[in-house]
Design a protein around this nucleic acid. Structure first.
Length: 639
RNA sequence: GGCGGUGUAGCUCAGUCGGUUAGAGCAUGCGGCUCAUAUCCGCAGUGUCCGGGGUUCAAGUCCCUGCACCGCUACCA
């Protein structure tokens, strides 16, 4: 009945798993579990993308063959997911034989249909980088990385005729508001498509790259990037004839981060169209996790390791935080402080304590045996509990269907708070004091048990471990009892007379100061002062080659507003193009000693190659050079 | 510089088609309870809705403009 197929991107193996990978995959897992609870048959695919240039280079750095290297990193992903309680059905690798076979079949099919053509072109090629450069990218006619003049070589390649599908795609997206969602990303794709679409180069000659899938119609070439990677979504199901493919493909939900919107929103639908495969159902695009106010990046050294977080706080708490904190589609900040706060207030105080106080009373007043649930007729609070529960179930389901995971959790927590309040208002500890109110006590605690049963069910997609632990301690029949929405829609499923196991603590509180005291005081940033950038290690700082340099010559760059071309001596001589013309006259600079960054990647400004950067203290009003307080040997390093 | 996005309580953010006195959670303060993991429940706030102008009977919401921050890009480096 209504099968559900969810995919994550296949992760490129040139980097270790980070928070963003974890989020995409947790989202897919949550969706998968949710749809299973709805009674649907589900299939969940993840995997790794292992071909291409960058993998070859990363492998070389490690002294490994591309395949061995790819296997090692792939294994990191594959073993991380079970740690986060992610239950995928299949883990695909683009190096799988079956995948390679499908890629070839589809390439041949599109080639036969005439949408792939062969074309020769000429370009500036840098042998050091092993790549072509466009005129725009060149700096002073030289390679920006190697500072060498690239050679003009002729190369032939295969191109995918995307341009002829442009109008079709625009219309397809325009007539289907939920094809790409949230809407902001749909608009972004439509904006891309306002410009003419260029045909996509889909091959690399083997003289340059061997690590890929050989073209079926020309064994001198391999396919490049996206043709290989995107097809994983169909090859994993056993395209074209398998039962899995027929059942699941038309119901596919892709989950991706916004960085790969273009391939998924443009190349992929066109590829499917050209190959005669039905379109995917939905493309669901999420934002980035920013760590400590600045974008997460390996070079900043502030990558948050998903495994470390799981080990410290537990998979369920980590999953809860990811799903509760981020609005699907928007960027979100990650901080350990926020994580600890969520754990303490939402999980420990609200849910954990509710669970604990409820079960303690069952044990204390009823020797751990679930009481009868006869509703006390005079208590209208019973009805409130039931309708509050049903409302929560409905709101939660609606929110999940529109990927509003944070709203789904908010709806659950509203009900958790209502249950806490119900206990407060009915005051079972007072009822317990009088024999005559025994039946009311039974009814109240039975209602609380029912509330907890519903809560356990609702949190299952996000926190499967906690859900199962709660279920066990609520004396519910194992496994499937709460894993169906149809059971959550019914009030009164808890079976009276069941003996409950000894109670447990679901989420211990985390002492705040432990998480916060990293040893340094934080300065309060003022309006005048910029926020402090994320912490870096000494090792990273020392990679910056700061030196004293003497300005030998300075001249205005023609036609520029603020650029000066400087010839400097910093142990060696090189040119720097600096934006100083508005604050400094060229003749005043000659002979001055300044501080430069000597190992900055060269860049072209106004067609002139700049090999470094002059340090200044600058704001909107002034620009002051950083210099030394007495004559120094040019090239003297700063430390 | 260009294009796009964002700007709402101390913090993180909701705010629908322009419509009553602008909301939630956290943090803070006060009160209540004692079943519970010092938890829970109630009450209380605090707002230049970034600034300025405009449209309108009515603007957080629409228009213009300025500023700040983010992303892409560029003659930032």
């Amino acid at each position: 009945m209504n099968p559900f197929y969810v995919t994550t991107p296949i992760y490129y193996v040139n980097a270790r798993p980070h928070l963003g990978h974890a989020y995409s995959t947790v989202v897919a897992d949550v969706l998968n579990r949710f749809h299973r609870m709805c009674g649907q048959e589900t299939y969940f695919l993840t995997g790794t993308d292992e071909h291409g240039d960058k993998v070859v280079r990363a492998a070389k750095d490690e002294g490994l063959s591309p395949l061995v290297y790819a296997e090692q990193v792939s294994e990191l992903f594959k073993t991380l997911w079970p740690e986060l309680d992610i239950e995928y059905d299949y883990f695909i690798r683009t190096t799988d034989h079956v995948h390679v076979k499908v890629v070839k079949e589809i390439l041949q099919k599109i080639y036969d249909a005439g949408d792939i053509y062969f074309s020769e072109y000429e370009g500036a090629y840098c042998f050091g980088c092993e790549r072509f450069y466009t005129e725009r990218e060149l700096v002073d006619g030289r390679c920006p990385d190697h500072n060498t003049v690239p050679e003009v070589i002729r190369e032939s390649n295969y191109f995918f005729r995307m341009s002829r599908y442009q109008d079709w795609l625009v219309e397809y997206i325009e007539t289907r508001p939920d094809f790409i969602r949230p809407e902001r990303y749909r608009n972004e794709v439509l904006a891309f498509l306002r410009e003419p679409l260029e045909d996509l180069c889909i091959s690399r000659p083997k003289t340059r790259l061997q690590w890929g899938v050989t073209l079926p119609f020309d064994d001198r070439y391999v396919t490049y990037v996206w043709f290989d990677a995107l097809l994983n979504y169909v090859s994993a199901l056993g395209y074209p004839d398998s039962d899995l493919f027929k059942r699941f493909w038309p119901n596919v939900h892709h989950v991706i981060a916004k960085d790969i919107l273009k391939p998924h929103g443009i190349y992929w639908p066109i590829m499917l169209r050209a190959a005669g495969i039905p379109q995917y159902r939905h493309l669901n695009v999420h934002g980035y996790w920013n760590v400590d106010e600045s974008k997460m990046s390996k070079s900043l050294g502030n990558v948050v390791e998903p495994l470390d977080l799981k080990n410290q706080y537990g998979a369920d708490a980590f999953r809860y935080f990811l799903m509760r904190e981020m609005v699907f589609g928007l960027d979100c900040n990650f901080s350990e402080k926020a994580l600890v706060q969520r754990i303490n207030s939402d999980l420990a105080n609200d849910l954990g304590n509710l669970f604990s106080r409820s079960l303690t009373m069952i044990h204390r007043y009823f020797e751990g045996i679930v009481p009868k649930g006869d509703l006390a007729p005079e208590s209208n609070l019973d009805l409130d509990m039931k309708s509050a529960a049903l409302r929560s179930v409905r709101e939660c389901r609606e929110a999940m269907e529109e990927f509003a995971f944070n709203k789904a959790l908010m709806a659950i927590w509203r009900f958790i708070n209502q249950t806490n309040k119900y206990i407060d208002v009915t005051a079972p500890w007072e009822l317990a004091k009088r024999k005559a109110q025994r039946e009311q006590l039974q009814a109240v605690l039975y209602n609380v048990m029912e509330g907890l049963r519903v809560i356990a069910g609702l949190i299952y997609p996000v926190m499967p471990r906690t859900a199962q632990l709660m279920q066990k301690h609520l004396g519910l029949p194992s496994a499937d009892a709460f894993q169906k929405f149809e059971d959550l829609d019914v009030w009164g499923r808890t079976i009276p007379g069941t003996k409950l196991p000894k109670t447990v603590s679901l989420f211990p509180r985390i002492e705040q100061d432990k998480a916060q005291s990293t040893g340094h005081e934080t300065l309060e940033p003022t309006d005048e002062m910029p926020h402090r950038k994320p912490e870096i290690s000494m090792e990273i700082f020392q990679r910056i080659d700061l030196r004293v340099a003497t300005v030998l010559d300075a001249e205005l760059v023609p036609r520029s507003k603020k650029l000066l071309k400087l010839r400097v001596h910093a142990g060696e001589e090189f040119n720097i193009v600096a934006g100083l013309a508005e604050s400094h006259k060229p003749e005043d600079l000659v002979g001055k000693q300044v501080v430069v960054v000597a190992n900055l990647k060269p860049a072209k400004l106004m067609g002139i190659l700049s090999h470094g950067m002059v340090l200044t203290a600058a704001n909107k009003d002034s620009c002051r050079l950083i210099t030394v307080d007495g004559p120094s040997e040019p090239g003297t390093p700063l430390s």
